[in-house]
Computed example of a mutant assay.
Amino acid sequence: MIEEQTLVSALQSEEQKEAAFRELVSQYKERLYWHIRKIVLDHDDTDDVLQNTFIKIFRNIDSFKGDSKLYTWMYRIATNEAITFINKRAKRAQITSEEIKENAIKKLESDVYFEGSAIQLKLQKAIHTLPERQQLIFNMKYFDDITYEELSEVLETSVGGLKSSYHIAVKKITAFLKADETI
């Protein structure tokens, strides 16, 4: 694994850009895949969004200034691409983004790539009852174990606001799970 600063320098060098980009994809594709998957839920859609994310990273790497960590910059791009994907799909289908997410949850139940148990499916349903921002915060903090400081860079908001949103999200998810006696 190449150190981040060395990788960024290579990515911004015309001679080394392609090889460095292959390394970047190798290092980050799985993390970004699962981050995006938690937002869009569907495997095929996730692959499409991931591809668009890497295209955008490749095209914009020269504008990366190093003010944040490389992966927080990439997470911001992946997050925005996933949200844009959901919103575009909703607009095309002339339904709300919430309806898109409800349909995705229903589809998840029969998804051959979803290997979770009934409890994990119930957790995904609970998460998707949250407002979009709380979903992002919860997923990134709980599943990706991103620090509040890093989350603050990715979502461009205050640490205090993130802590509050995460706490509220946890309460809502807990209430949702307790309301169902089948668990």
Rank of each mutant, 00 (worst) to 15 (best):
D48G: 08
I61F: 02
S68M: 06
G66K: 02
T79M: 02
A82F: 10
W73H: 04
T79H: 10
T72Q: 01
K69G: 08
A82Y: 06
S68V: 13
M74Q: 05
T72C: 03
R76H: 12
I61R: 03
R59K: 15
K65T: 15
S68E: 07
N60Y: 02
N52P: 00
Q51C: 07
N52Q: 14
R59V: 12
M74K: 06
V49L: 05
M74R: 09
I61K: 01
I83N: 12
N80A: 07
R76C: 09
I83D: 04
G66Y: 02
I83G: 11
G66A: 05
A78Y: 04
G66W: 05
T72S: 13
K56P: 00
D62V: 00
D67V: 08
R59L: 15
K65A: 12
Q51H: 11
V49N: 03
F54M: 07
N52T: 11
D48H: 09
I83W: 05
D62P: 00
S68F: 10
T79Y: 10
I77C: 09
N60S: 14
I61M: 09
I61N: 07
Y71A: 06
R59F: 07
K69R: 15
S63R: 15
F64G: 09
E81Y: 04
I77S: 10
I83L: 15
K65C: 07
N80K: 10
I57P: 03
E81F: 11
N52W: 02
N52I: 07
Y75N: 15
W73A: 05
S68L: 05
A78W: 05
D62S: 11
Q51V: 08
R59P: 00
F64I: 03
F64S: 08
K65Q: 14
N60M: 08
K56W: 00
R76Y: 09
D67K: 13
W73F: 12
L70Q: 06
T79L: 06
K69T: 14
V49G: 09
T53C: 11
I83S: 09
E81C: 13
I57G: 03
V49A: 09
D48S: 14
Q51Y: 11
F54V: 06
Y71D: 13
F54C: 05
L70C: 04
N52H: 13
G66C: 07
W73S: 05
A78C: 11
S63I: 11
K69N: 03
Y75P: 00
R59C: 08
D48K: 13
Y71H: 14
D62Y: 10
R76L: 06
G66N: 02
N60Q: 12
F54R: 06
S68T: 15
L70V: 05
R76F: 05
T72G: 00
F64L: 07
F54S: 05
F54H: 06
G66H: 03
A78H: 04
N52F: 08
Y71L: 14
M74A: 13
A82N: 03
T72I: 02
K65W: 03
D62L: 11
K65Y: 00
D48R: 06
Y75T: 02
S68K: 12
I55Q: 04
I55C: 00
D48N: 14
W73P: 06
M74C: 11
T72D: 00
S68W: 02
F58I: 03
